[in-house]
Design a protein around this nucleic acid. Sequence first.
DNA 1: AAAGATTGAACTGTCAATCTTG
DNA 2: CAAGATTGACAGTTCAATCTTT
Lengths: 179, 179
Amino acid sequence: VAPDGISEREWALWRGVALMGRRLSAALERAVQDAAGISSAEFEVLNALSHSPDQQARARDLADMLSWEKSRVSHLVTRMTARALVTRGACETDMRGTWVVLAPAGSQALANALPAYVRTVRDGFTARIAADDATRLASVAVDVARDLGNGACSAELDAIAAASSARPAQGVIAEDAVH
Amino acid sequence: VAPDGISEREWALWRGVALMGRRLSAALERAVQDAAGISSAEFEVLNALSHSPDQQARARDLADMLSWEKSRVSHLVTRMTARALVTRGACETDMRGTWVVLAPAGSQALANALPAYVRTVRDGFTARIAADDATRLASVAVDVARDLGNGACSAELDAIAAASSARPAQGVIAEDAVH
DNA sequence: AAAGATTGAACTGTCAATCTTG
DNA sequence: CAAGATTGACAGTTCAATCTTT
């Protein structure tokens, strides 16, 4: 059943993972829609902004982080501005750039959506992966993303790699205790 | 940095996997577009049909397999029919149903796209997962898909589960050899 | 000329309404 | 009336053209 060039087991793995991805996306869409009346695309923008310095980011960086077209960001920001979820701001240091700034209503919508989103991610996926499998999987994910992306947002990837391989909590103490 | 209700490591795992998924999707879109001039949505329809009995499937079943809206299938099939990639046929046993049938041009487009698609999946993902990790990951994927899907296409999921846990090749012989 | 961003037209997907058959 | 499918209007995305700033 598998095509040439790939083993039966690899093909089955891919079909399973792809199907899981589609259904997880659908579940996340429903979760944030029900909890806060926003689409998952809007959720991702708000979430990215909330983790950025001064709760703002340049349009170009948003497009890189989400691997979206620039025009998709622009159109979406226009719609979100109309609903007061974000505002646009001029960039002082580079007059070509535009800041997208998290607005109070956006912050509130994010707060409403986050618990449902996190619950879906955790119950639906991360809690089912054993701890040491998780480390290896995250490492593969970062490698793949780095290879396929055109060098964009490598800082983000570094952060993910660091966080996913760190010891749970008392790592430093435990290492000292070995001596 | 992680929200309440999820650990730092789990959150990092999710961000990495989500980013990998977005970039892999983009790479697959480019691959089939360059190789055969079709979108990845069209590829998935053609691929599903090519694995169906008589190279045809009912619209409803396509929607289930791909977890798409019925209307999405209908619109896409209309466009694909215009390009002679598929044809529609009446269903004898249930006059409400419609068969979507793989046409020669569709079969050819699939043949052109498949090598590039498989190469992207293999080089970009499955070849990077160790064999025993792959078994567990596929098992998790099937479980998640089953929980989130409304019972649809469980036969497909059974097949994936079976294929991903099977021994590489000489499994039966090896088991006999134990005695 | 290249980079950041926006705009409008064309395309794709979603939602609700509709039609036909079981 | 429920299920399979299609249709049309609308929402969201992509692509190419445009504008401004570096």
